[in-house]
Design a protein around this nucleic acid. Sequence first.
DNA 1: TAGGACACGTGAACC
DNA 2: TGGTTCACGTGTCCT
Lengths: 206, 206
Amino acid sequence: MEDFVESMLNFGGGGGDESEDGEQLPPAGETTGYKSKNLDAERRRRSRLNSNILALRAVVPNITKMSKESTLSDAIDHIKKLQNEVLELQTQLADSPGEAREKQGSASCSESFAPTDSIHYQGQVELIPLGSCKYNLKIFWTKRAGLFTKVLEALYSNNVQVLSLNTITFYGYAESFFSIEVKGEQDAVMVELRNILSSIVEVPSN
Amino acid sequence: MEDFVESMLNFGGGGGDESEDGEQLPPAGETTGYKSKNLDAERRRRSRLNSNILALRAVVPNITKMSKESTLSDAIDHIKKLQNEVLELQTQLADSPGEAREKQGSASCSESFAPTDSIHYQGQVELIPLGSCKYNLKIFWTKRAGLFTKVLEALYSNNVQVLSLNTITFYGYAESFFSIEVKGEQDAVMVELRNILSSIVEVPSN
DNA sequence: TAGGACACGTGAACC
DNA sequence: TGGTTCACGTGTCCT
C-alpha cells in the first residue's frame, strides 16, 4: 500500500543514482551544508534492511499490521509456533513408550525452561510435558457414570484448554488421550491437576 | 562484544527524561534550533523496534553476525527451515499408513491448521435418540483451536451428562461420538442443543 | 489538533 | 586509513 515510496529511494536521477547533484562542498561557510561521508552507503544499508523486513513479511503467514514493529512481532510468534509444532510432531512421531525423551532433531529449545520434568506415571494418569504450554495427558479408567464429566470439569476449573482428544472404550474400560494446553504458570497447577485427576479416576471404595 | 550499547535502551535521564529545555518553538527563525515534536515518540519507537530485533535474535538459534541485517536474514532462513521441517514431519507422519499408525493407537493430532489449506468440510451434527433419556451424538468438524472446549461447554450448560466419548482425529479433521444422557424435559432442549452445536462446529465465514 | 510510522542525513564508533 | 554499522533528531506523510 504505502511502500511505493520506498522503491523510489534513488530519487531524482535514473540509474546512475548520486554523484551528479553538485558534489562540490562549500569549504568555509556552513550555510548551505552539503556534507556527508557515507550518505550513499547508509542509503544502501537502509534499503537492504527494508528489503529484509519485506522478505520477512512475505514468509510469515499472518501479518497483523503493515508496520515494521508488528512484522517483527508476528515473525517472532510465528517462529515460536513453528518450533512448538516441530517439537510436537517429533514427539508424536517417535513416541514409543520405552524411550521417547532423547529425540532432538534440530529445533533448539531456546527458552522452554523447565518443561523437562519427568514422566509422571501414577496408575491411571500420565502427564507428559511437551514444552511451551502443552502436555499430553493419558487417562485410563473403569467406566462409571458421570466420571468423564468430572474429569472435564477438573480440566476446566484449572484453565486447561483441550486441543484434541482421543478416547477408546472397550467393555467397561476407557482410555483417553488428551492434548492440552495450559496458560499461565504450570508447575504447581499441573501437579495439583494430576492429583485431582488421579483421585477422580481411581477406583473408589466399593 | 559490541552490543554493550544496546543494553542502554532505557534512554536519557532517569524517570522524567527531557521536556524542560524550552519547549516553545521559534516560529520563524531557525537559529537556535532545539525543536522537535515527536522526539520522544521516535525514541520509544526505535527502542521498541530494537527490542523486537533483540527478541528475534533470541528466538533464532544460529545467528551468524550481531547485526540487524543478518539477524533478519537468519530469521528468514530459520522460518523457511522450520516450515520445511514441519511439512516434512507431517508427510512423514501421514505417509506411514502401515506402521506408525497401528502401533500408535491413538496419539493426538497436532492442530496445525493453515499449512495446507485443503478443502474445508462443513461440520455436521447428528443427534439420535435412543430412548429413555439417552442419545447418541455424532459430531464431525475441522479442527480449530478451542473448538472442542466450546462443544463441551455447550453440553454442560445444557445439563448434558457425557456417558462415553470416542473421538478419532485425522489430519485436520475430527469426529466425535458422544453417548449422552439428559435429565429433565428434552424436546426443546435437544433441538436447541443441536443448533448450538451446529453453529459451533460449522466453518465460520471464509 | 495530536499522534504514529517512516525515510532521511549525519556524527560517532568499530573493524 | 576507508568501510560498515549504529543511534540520533528531524521533516513529512497519513491517519
